[in-house]
Design a protein around this nucleic acid. Structure first.
Lengths: 109, 109
DNA sequence: CTGCATCCCTTTAGATACTG
DNA sequence: CAGTATCTAAAGGGATGCAG
């Protein structure tokens, strides 16, 4: 999942999934898509069960892939806000489709 | 990724990704969507680099999740054919969207 | 040809502690 | 409040051999 390493993809779907796949990334993107700008701490409260380390890591990767924007305010205490970039916003239809499909199918578990 | 274990999902997207996420599943589904019925060996030839173990595992999980159908012919040598179920076919739009998004964005790497 | 089991190594993620 | 580093436990995936 190290986005900066050159890699060969057999299929574009595989590439897309390296950017938005995984346990946390889609949920992070989903919240930013719905709520716009969010602070680090706010995101952490929304993602029940995520560890501090994981959230930092995921946000860092999403930023490196140009999907989210990181705005840092140099204050004490620090304050950092995250939001979707234009590229990130183009993923919303995909997230919506997956969300819809999940809702329609997961109830039969 | 053990699909038969009860699990809580914070978001339907997460559930969807446990079914179609990962390195191989979307590609397998993609090929079955395009070509219809395929034999085990044919799929293996299409997925460059996949190991024997991985393919068996992924196919088994996809079958357990009701996304693909497994038709076994009791012959010597054995012959097994795989195809999408109706449920599996409902995923095609999602795969198409992800494929399209990947094509439009991965060229800028 | 297709599938399962085992061994083993690599990768990933959780817990904890520390910095600005 | 936000982020980093380290250590460790657990999961993932490759290679190989055996079975129907």
């Amino acid at each position: 999942m190290k986005s900066f390493i050159a890699k060969q993809y057999a299929c574009p779907v595989e590439y897309t999934l390296t950017l938005i796949g995984g346990k946390w990334k889609p949920v992070i993107l989903w919240h930013l898509a719905n709520d716009g700008i969010k602070r680090y701490g706010e995101i952490k409260k929304l993602l029940i069960g995520i560890t501090h380390k994981m959230l930092s890591q995921q946000l860092k990767e999403l930023e490196a892939d140009g999907l989210i924007h990181r705005e840092e305010y140099h204050q004490i205490p620090p304050k950092v806000e995250y939001s979707l970039t234009d590229k990130g916003k183009t993923l919303i239809p995909i997230l919506q489709l997956m969300c819809q499909w999940g809702q329609e199918n997961m109830e039969h578990i």
